[in-house]
Simulated scan of single mutants.
Amino acid sequence: MKKATPLSKTDIYLLEKRLAYEFKDKRLLELALSHRSVGPKNNERLEFLGDSLLNLTIAEALFHQFPDAKEGDLSRLRAHLVKGETLAEIAREKQLGDVVLLGTGEMKSGGFRRDSILADTVEALIGAIYLDQDMFCCQNKVLEWYESRLAGLDLKKAGKDPKTCLQELMQEKSLALPAYRVLNESGENHARMYEVECRLVNVEQVFCAIASSKRQAEKKAAELALQYFDEEVSGN
């Protein structure tokens, strides 16, 4: 369970190891982890800076990776990579929820699990690394964090919502569109969880997923359905 108190030396050491970056100015690190709920000394300005740095870094990487891609495709790919959901995934990989500094109210309501807070923290860390070092170091660090995501990009599919991809696939096969239904809702009001099923015509298997919003649960269920078709095509 995360703490509301300032980070210990052990917290800092372990976090820097996960980030693969050692801050010269530890105050910048602590500021980057400080949500606005802790008071006026928070990470919002660093988040603003990091957002711009992230967009530039990813735009440049995509520009070189896809030399023949059109502007619209590059914009779609960038939006996919810098969106809050992707940033929150990176935050969880680095276990930022264990060290983000929150006010009492946010901590009690589970803010350390919230995608928006985690995503903002990643952006703030990017801004902090830039100020602690320089642009070259900052961009290299971002590219390290995004290495597998950039390597796995498919120009035709990446950036498209799984529900959209599944719908297009069904249309290609001249089949009825997917049907989604909420099976169950659970948890407290501030931490609701939704279980959703996705059913497809002529497919016996039902694809179920759980997430903190109906939309996210539907997207996860659609991803499972897409995986099913990929495996069917590959013969696995």
Rank of each mutant, 00 (worst) to 15 (best):
Leu19Val: 11
Glu231Val: 03
Arg76Glu: 11
Gln205Asp: 08
Tyr180Ala: 08
Leu15Ile: 08
Glu71Ser: 02
Pro67Asp: 02
Asp11Ala: 12
Cys165Glu: 15
Ile210Arg: 14
Asp154Phe: 06
Glu30Tyr: 08
Gln65Phe: 01
Ile58Phe: 12
Leu101Pro: 01
His80Ala: 15
Cys208Ala: 04
Ala211Met: 10
Lys141Gly: 00
Tyr180Asp: 06
Glu195Ser: 06
Gly159Ser: 15
Ile12Ala: 11
Ser148Thr: 09
Asn189Phe: 12
Arg192Leu: 15
Glu60Cys: 07
Leu166Asn: 09
Ala217Leu: 03
Asp154Ala: 09
Ala32Asn: 07
Gly235Tyr: 13
Cys138Asp: 08
Asp11Cys: 13
Asn202Arg: 08
Met107Ser: 00
Val122Ser: 02
Ala59Cys: 06
Arg199Tyr: 05
Tyr21Met: 13
Leu169Pro: 01
Lys9Thr: 04
Pro6Cys: 12
Arg192Lys: 14
Ile90Gly: 02
Arg113His: 04
Lys26Thr: 09
Cys165Met: 15
Leu102Pro: 03
Asp230Tyr: 11
Glu123His: 07
Lys17Ala: 10
Pro178Gln: 06
Ala222Thr: 00
Arg45Asn: 09
Ala20Met: 08
Lys214Leu: 02
Leu74Asp: 06
Glu71Val: 07
Lys156Ser: 09
Asn236Ile: 13
Asn55His: 14
Tyr194Cys: 05
Lys3Cys: 09
Glu44Arg: 13
Phe48Arg: 13
Asn184Ser: 11
Lys108Pro: 00
Leu155Cys: 02
Lys214Trp: 01
Tyr194Glu: 06
Ile12Trp: 14
Leu49Ala: 04
Leu226Glu: 12
Lys94Ile: 07
Glu60Trp: 11
Glu89Pro: 03
Asp25Glu: 11
Leu15Val: 03
Asp11Pro: 11
Val182Ala: 06
His35Asn: 11
Glu16Thr: 12
Pro67Met: 07
Ala128Cys: 03
Tyr194Asp: 06
Lys26His: 03
Tyr146Glu: 03
Leu81Trp: 08
Ser234Asn: 04
Ile210His: 05
Leu226Pro: 03
Lys70Glu: 05
Gln171Arg: 14
Arg114Trp: 01
Arg27Pro: 00
Val38Met: 14
Glu168Arg: 13
Leu175Gln: 12
Lys3Met: 10
Asp11Phe: 13
Ala61Met: 12
Thr10Ala: 14
Ala217Ile: 03
Ala61Val: 07
Tyr130Trp: 15
Met193Glu: 10
Met107Gly: 00
Arg199Gly: 00
Glu204Ala: 14
Gln95Arg: 15
Phe112Asp: 13
Ala91Tyr: 11
Phe112Val: 05
Leu101Cys: 09
Asn55Met: 10
Ala176His: 08
Tyr13Asp: 07
Thr5Met: 06
Arg215Gln: 05
Lys24Leu: 10
Gly72Arg: 12
Lys157Asp: 04
Val196Trp: 13
Gln65Val: 00
Asn189Val: 13
Leu46Asp: 01
Gln133Ser: 00
Asp73Pro: 01
